[in-house]
Design a protein around this nucleic acid. Structure first.
Length: 432
RNA sequence: GGCCCCAUCGUCUAGCGGUUAGGACACCGCCCUUUCACGGCGGUGACGGGGGUUCGAGUCCCCCUGGGGUCGCCA
């Protein structure tokens, strides 16, 4: 069983989409089930409706899941198991206030040493604890020996008890913390391979520690993906527009192109342009680069154009909101545009924008009058010959204004092709 | 700062002891063209530094430097 576990606290991030994608691909390859788990234990930060939005995006990208779980539904497991650890002496009640801890953190920072829990409440007995009043949390006792695990991408990993620390597993409001809930849910769902971002690497020993204490012996495999960097080489954040899947979609990038790019990034693939189905055939998580990669919008644009080129003309026309017959014309403009948004704008200019003829005003007027009276032949050559004959114009003074009439721009796709696909519209275009 | 990870063109990468260090995107030039962010052809451009090991190092080892991640009652 594999899983994707987003939190409904913000827009789906491009890095998260990649995590979902890889989990999906590997599940398909291994013929395992794949579930989505919404991590909603932080009520304060949950955003109403974000879960649905995330699910919709997954659907749009063709990432299908076998089951959907809400982490909050497992609350009773989390709480019961926290108390079990407490009773067994593997966890303890901690009364340290947040202010107190904050002070210690600042002190640690000033002394340039990493902050770790002081251990102050570690030896409080349950009896002593029950006699005290005030808010408290439950912390797990840090392990006695280093925690080791194997990562499919990073190799063997080892973390000292000091790095794991005695961390909080149950908050003062009774809700589990991320690491605790996550460790338990993965156990309950029988997750065998966890593919997630590198930023979770240091969480992994904590989660393993929890399951160890709970007596869970099954070994879980990990693959921590290098994070995606922005152009400055920093972790992509909400500040980077391209990090938002929603934004990319609005800009007119095709889901299949985004998928292509996310698989290509930091990877060795047999082709540059491919479909998700093809990738499932050869994708190898172990071949992913250990180095974090910068997000390259230019490359995405290139791939998007390639996928746009593969689209059925009618479907393409539909996507940019023009009649299906104009699909071939839209395709012509792929040589000048890389996204649906740009394409839409190009086509709008051809079909709707008022023409500016500049120095060719007189010639354009002459051509328009001729065209208005002409029965338009199928072939451009014929059309050209006829209009030329009737007009007395030739060369640049013929082609420039003609191009302007047909497309509204002084440059663009080959004029004979424009004519072929635009022919039914020409009588209208000369009125612009 | 502690811990962890990483290091080949601007970007993504190939390379697994002997290569003119290859490809793709981007960029530039030429051709085609009335024109073009299409197409064809070509070009600029990289092994971070220092020590070893070796006949020989981008490839193996060490150090330095640089970059990234992480150190919450967030996930």
């Amino acid at each position: 069983m594999l899983r994707f576990a987003p939190s409904p606290t913000g827009d789906l991030h491009i890095g998260n989409l990649r995590v979902a994608l890889f989990n999906y691909i590997v599940a398909k390859q291994k013929n395992k089930r794949f579930i989505v788990r919404i991590e909603d234990t932080d009520q304060a930060r949950n955003v109403e409706g974000k879960d649905k939005e995330i699910l919709e995006i997954l659907k749009l990208f063709g990432i299908e899941y076998d089951d959907l779980i809400y982490q909050s539904k497992n609350l009773h497991f989390h709480q019961n198991l926290a108390f079990k650890l407490l009773e067994e002496g593997k966890a303890f009640v901690c009364f340290c206030s947040e202010e107190e801890l904050e002070k210690e953190r600042e002190k640690a920072k000033k002394e340039r040493r990493p902050y770790r829990y002081s251990g102050k409440c570690e030896n409080l007995t349950l009896k002593e604890a029950s006699q005290r009043r005030g808010k408290f949390v439950i912390r797990v006792k840090k392990p006695a020996t280093p925690i080791k695990f194997r990562d499919l991408i990073k190799g063997e990993q080892q973390f000292s008890p000091f790095e794991v620390d005695s961390f909080v597993i149950l908050r003062s409001n009774g809700m589990p913390t991320y690491n605790f809930a996550c460790a338990i849910d993965d156990m309950l769902s029988d997750i065998e391979l966890i593919i997630r971002g590198e930023d979770h690497l240091s969480n992994t020993p904590k989660q393993i520690h929890i399951r160890n204490l709970l007596g869970y012996t099954k070994e879980v495999e990990y693959a921590h993906l290098p994070i995606i960097l922005n152009e400055e080489g920093k972790k992509m954040s909400k500040r980077d527009k391209a990090s938002s899947v929603k934004w990319l979609l609005e800009e007119g990038f095709l889901p299949q192109a985004i998928i292509n790019y996310l698989i290509l990034l930091g990877n060795q693939t047999p082709q540059e342009v491919f479909t998700l189905q093809e990738a499932i055939e050869w994708f190898d998580i172990g071949k992913l680069s250990k180095t974090s990669a910068k997000f390259d919008l230019a490359k995405l644009r290139f791939l998007n154009r390639k996928h746009l080129e593969k689209l059925d003309p009618k479907l393409l026309a539909q996507k940019i909101g023009v009649k299906e017959e104009l699909g071939e014309l839209v395709k012509l403009y792929l040589e000048e545009a890389s996204t649906l948004k740009e394409l839409k704008e190009k086509i709008r200019k051809v079909l709707e924008e008022k023409r500016e003829f500049g120095e060719f005003k007189r010639e354009a007027q002459e051509l328009k009058e001729i065209i208005a009276q002409l029965e338009l032949p199928t072939e451009f050559e014929e059309f050209k010959k006829e209009v030329m004959k009737r007009s007395s114009l030739k060369g640049k003074r013929f082609f420039k204004p003609l191009r302007l009439i047909l497309s509204g721009a002084d440059k663009g796709p080959e004029i004979s092709l424009l004519y072929r696909h635009l022919r039914p519209e020409i009588k209208e275009l000369i009125k612009l």
